[in-house]
Amino acid sequence: MAITKEQVLHVAKLARLNLTDEETERLRGDMENIIGFADKLNELDTEGVVPTAHAIPMQNAFREDVVIPSYDREAILQNAPDRDEEAFVVPKVVE
């Protein structure tokens, strides 16, 4: 399983990570090893096998559509890295 530097950088972009050259090279090797390890799964014939998402049978968990108390705005904003009186503040998105 060969993984190229370009593939690593593409995945990093999808994952919103900026990698240094050293990290890129180390991750390239690690990904080759770990994904190569996962290639072992190809030894098993899974034609027609239904994938399992949860180990126990799950059904939709519905609740009544009623309003319940929510958090105070202040409680939610108290951890914000940057904020004003009533909102999270982020860098300007639209010029």
């Binding site: 899974t46 096998v49 994938p51 399992t52």
Partner: peptide, 14 residues
């Protein structure tokens, strides 16, 4: 090739 395959193997292991 990877995620779905792993979930299918999960079924077999169960």
């Amino acid at each position: 090739a990877y995620y779905k395959k792993a979930q299918q193997v999960r079924t077999l292991i169960m």
